[in-house]
Design a binder for these strands. Structure first.
Length: 557
RNA sequence: GUCCCCGUAGCUCAGUUGGAUAGAGCGCAGGAUUCCUAAUCCUGAGGCCGCAGGUUCGAAUCCUGCCGGGGACGCCA
């Protein structure tokens, strides 16, 4: 919609052939939808931009542009105003709206989609929680934001691969094995302390209990290292399943479960990726031996400091695996790499990018979306995320308490780089205070209208759209037609919250309209069919928008 | 000390690739239903956009400094 206006302005500006330098690139001026009605349906700052470029009075430039546009006689432009310092305001008539509105039903669930990313493959890595425990609520924001970003990117035409990187190779896995083993040993009557950095949630002893009951339970006492390995593998596979279950309950899917152990450390027929990466870094002269360890010289590539990749005991660090992993991502041919990370990993961004740069890869195609922390609140009081027992508030508990829709909505409603207060008592409330229902209710009301319309013998029709001319109807149309652009902007900036805000605005406008205007007016069936059609448009957009957020759009509430 | 995020209404936050008179929800005070779902709607009060400079036609938005809150700075992952 805006694009149409932008095209018109460009044509006219070009036709003016203003003296001096040729017009620069196209992004220099913009078309916006003004907040105030007096400023028209669309507005452009073109004259201001050009004026300051050419050193001319913006209002005079505006006048020239307006004349050029008027000469071309676009049917749908009713009036052009020059306002303030030189804004050009467009007032358009219904014909433009109507033709655009028809696209909504024509495209249906595709309305708002684009081909922006067509031909581009993008990998989104998110959650990637260690399989050493249940997902806690802190992981939920990452999961939901990552998932919604994927949905938006797919909608914009990208081919999206969703990947979970399983950190199943490192010391924390051994620690898991030892923790479970120590619980098992204790339950078998051995005096055995939990290892110092061990995991001590309740689930550890539950796992040990399961092992004890199982037929394959190792002999205790017996070969300890064998038993520990058994415990580790048992716990790992069980916990990974639990993680998958919880994510599915949150409506989060993955295409790839990428095992660090197999893919990075694994010895297939080829050379290990880890060794290959190390060799490459060495060949490039980007490492140095210092204090008996091997360091990657990140400071040469934009980071503030160097980082160890091989510890003095000879073991690789997590960072080296990470370099290998990302090198692998690049080699799989993605044009864009998106990582969704917790804000506590921010220092890893520069070091990872510096390593990609050192390897000659284009680090600008790697985007890291940092997610700030969530604070759980109940009745205005903070709920500690970790309990005395060493357990965390799990995702599962919260899902059980407030349900998936509310959980997702609340986690998506704020910008990712803002700290988030998750109000459990509010999210649980089935009342008007809860914003989740606000949007869903608009949709349910429309469904109800549709049901009632059949009895009243009215059906939605685009035939009489021209009858819709009051302020509320026009406002709704304008909001509806903004949807594709909102999606594009939200996808581009990886910001699902923009869709949340948009839907709240649309729902508000619809509720207002609904209260003020009788839609199923049996006295005037032409009008009723047009209004019903408008309601149907709203429904399509709400359903599509909620779909991008992974939230259901119930037909009745 | 270095780096990242944040600071906007009583509370929680949008708005930040510079645009016109800064918005929403909650809370607070009032009000609306003989009729399509009141999980709704309307009205009102409520603001040195943390502070101070700078950049320009124009700054909540960009730059610098300072203050305040959170986080990261391990041969852990």
């Amino acid at each position: 919609m805006k694009d149409e206006i932008l095209k018109i302005i460009k044509e006219s500006v070009d036709s003016l052939a203003l003296p001096g330098s040729p017009m620069g690139n196209e992004t220099e001026f913009e078309v916006s939808v003004p907040k105030k009605k007096e400023f028209g349906d669309f507005s452009t700052n073109a004259a201001l931009v050009i004026g300051s470029m050419k050193g001319k009075n913006p209002r005079e430039v505006a006048q020239e542009i307006v004349e050029a546009i008027e000469q071309r006689q676009h049917g749908f432009i009713e009036r052009l105003d020059i306002a303030g310092p030189g804004f050009i305001n467009f007032f358009v008539n219904e014909t433009l709206f109507e033709s655009q509105l028809r696209e909504i039903l024509r495209l249906g669930e595709k309305y708002g989609a684009s081909r922006e990313g067509s031909g581009q493959r993008v990998i989104v890595e998110f959650v990637s929680a260690n399989p050493t425990g249940y997902l806690h609520f802190g992981h939920a924001r990452n999961a939901v934001v990552g998932d919604s970003v994927c949905r938006m990117l797919s909608f914009c035409g990208y081919e999206v691969i969703r990947e979970f990187y399983i950190n199943d190779a490192g010391r924390q896995m051994d620690m898991l094995g030892e923790s479970v083993y120590s619980a098992l040993a204790r339950s078998c009557g051995l005096a055995r302390e939990l290892p110092e950095d061990g995991y001590h949630g309740e689930y550890i002893s539950e796992l040990a209990g399961e092992i004890k009951k199982s037929e394959e339970c190792p002999q205790v006492p017996g070969d300890e290292s064998e038993a520990i390995e058994f415990c580790r593998e048992f716990a790992y596979s069980r916990l990974l399943e639990e993680i998958k279950t919880d994510l599915l309950d949150l409506r989060v899917n993955f295409d790839n479960w990428y095992s660090e152990r197999i893919e990075i450390h694994g010895r297939g027929s080829e050379e290990r990726k880890l060794d290959k990466t190390l060799a490459k870094l060495e060949d490039l002269g980007t490492v140095e031996r210092k204090e008996q360890a091997l360091w990657f010289k990140a400071s040469l590539y934009g980071d503030g400091k160097d980082w160890v990749i091989i510890k003095k005991d000879g073991a690789p660090t997590y960072f080296l695996s990470d370099i290998a992993y990302h090198m692998d991502k690049y080699s799989r041919g993605f044009s864009k790499l998106i990582n969704v990370w917790g804000a506590d990993h921010h220092s890893h961004v520069l070091r990872l990018k510096s390593s990609m740069k050192a390897l000659g890869l284009d680090e600008s195609s790697l985007h890291v979306l940092l997610i700030q922390f969530v604070r759980l609140v109940r009745e205005g009081v903070e709920v500690p995320m970790s309990k005395r027992t060493g357990d965390f508030v799990t995702l599962r508990e919260v899902l059980r308490e407030v349900g998936c829709d509310a959980t997702r909505f609340f986690l998506l409603m704020r910008s990712s780089d803002s700290h988030l207060d998750f109000d459990l008592s509010l999210a649980k409330k089935e009342s008007s205070e809860n914003p989740v229902y606000y949007v869903q209710y608009a949709n349910a009301r429309i469904s109800s209208l549709m049901r009632n319309s059949e009895e009243a013998g009215i059906s939605a029709s685009e035939e009489h759209l021209n009858l819709l001319s009051n302020d509320e109807e026009r406002n709704i149309m304008k909001i509806l037609l903004r949807f594709p652009e909102v999606v594009r902007s939200a996808a581009e900036s990886l910001s699902p919250h923009k869709v949340v805000y948009y839907l709240q605005e649309l729902a508000a406008e619809f509720h207002f309209y609904y209260n003020k205007t009788r839609i199923l007016d049996s006295e005037n069936t032409d009008m009723a069919s047009a209004r019903l059609c408008l309601a149907r448009y709203v429904q399509v957009v709400i359903e599509n928008g909620l779909g991008l957020l992974g939230i259901n759009a119930p037909r009745s509430m």
